[in-house]
Design a protein around this nucleic acid. Structure first.
Lengths: 194, 194
DNA sequence: TCGACCATGTAACACGTTACATGATTGA
DNA sequence: TCAATCATGTAACGTGTTACATGGTCGA
């Protein structure tokens, strides 16, 4: 139940900014919420139908003939806006994430040290790049006209990403240094423990 | 395919440390990998059966009568150990996580500023507590006997959690200050935009 | 006219959680 | 003897991804 509403929350939220087609909705989610959220077409379209049945969004057909036209524009109804506020007010708990890098790293003694270094280097580079993108994003947002209303909150989500990326980069660098110091750094040496 | 192997990887990895029952396996995953991984019983038992059929793990019955005995102990076979190395060597890509707090925060202008402050305060407190737990964990690991082999890698995963928690706490504090400064800090004031 | 992109939807499948049914062992 | 904990497994459900089928529009 808490889970079901997550997609609805994202969809209602996105439509609260502007009415759009399902296709564009998905694109906006990728573009704007992309660094902390994701939805696939397979979720967006069914969600829109469900929300329509519940009277939370309205479909405006661009044209009436056959299937495959210039797109249905969905807009929030008053009930939908109310529902959005309700969902936002509901309690939520962050799920323990699954981090594939850490899972592998935990069993790092089973693999070639060079591979472990590759993992960490990739993580480092990725995190550094993410940092830069967040800085650019921040600059963009500060230039935007609607800064006073939504801008602050958007900025906060970017800042969260920035902090996380910075931390990840720092960690990866430290980890590389620590492995170097621990002496596992020289040459491939797969273990034969136990 | 990449996904299916994730659970197998976790199970094989855990069994590479020590043979155990499904129940204990799950408990170890919660305890030891808990800050970056999770598996439910509903996944662990089927995974064990699958792995057994594939000859990657062996089941040792504690006792032969009826169902519900003192438990089946599973141990890695040679093939299982090989498979673990294979899985570890396979490429992987970290999925975009879904952060329910950031999703809500992004639409924060729709809700009472006091609620937003609650969200951030909870995030701050939670992250600070996590930091402390990570520090304790580090101390524990450094005292352990098998530090030389697995210890380093375990330490790295703890350090990753520590960095992430620290970053989250810093971010939450900054966010609270920023909202305070932005003047949204005084009294409930739900928006009536658009 | 052709490819890129906009657009809609579904079906199959993979992944994961929760709840339930069942029973043994152990220590208070 | 009673509760807690160890232990096994499944069934139902919900969530989420991928691939496919289909067609419109628009600019090169």
């Amino acid at each position: 139940m808490a889970r079901t509403s997550q997609t609805q929350l994202a969809v209602l939220g996105a439509l609260s900014i502007e009415p759009m087609t399902g296709y564009r909705l998905r694109a906006e989610i990728v573009q704007t919420l992309g660094h902390f959220w994701r939805e696939s077409f397979g979720q967006v379209y069914p969600a829109l139908s469900t929300l329509e049945e519940a009277g939370l969004v309205e479909r405006e057909r661009g044209d009436e003939r056959a299937t495959g036209r210039s797109g249905n524009v969905f807009r929030l109804t008053a009930a939908g806006r109310e529902r959005l506020r309700e969902l936002l007010a509901e309690p939520f708990q962050p799920p323990t994430p699954r981090d594939p890098l850490l899972l592998r790293l935990f069993f790092g003694h089973h693999v070639d040290p060079a591979l472990v270094r590759t993992w960490l280097t990739e993580a480092l580079v990725g995190a550094e790049r993410a940092c830069e993108r967040y800085d650019e994003l921040r600059a963009e947002i500060e230039r935007e006209p609607d800064f006073a209303t939504r801008g602050v909150f958007r900025l906060l989500t970017v800042s969260a990403g920035r902090h996380a990326a910075r931390a990840r980069a720092d960690w990866a660098r430290e980890a590389l240094e620590l492995l170097e110091a621990a002496g596992g750094g020289r040459g491939p040496r797969a273990d034969r423990d136990r």
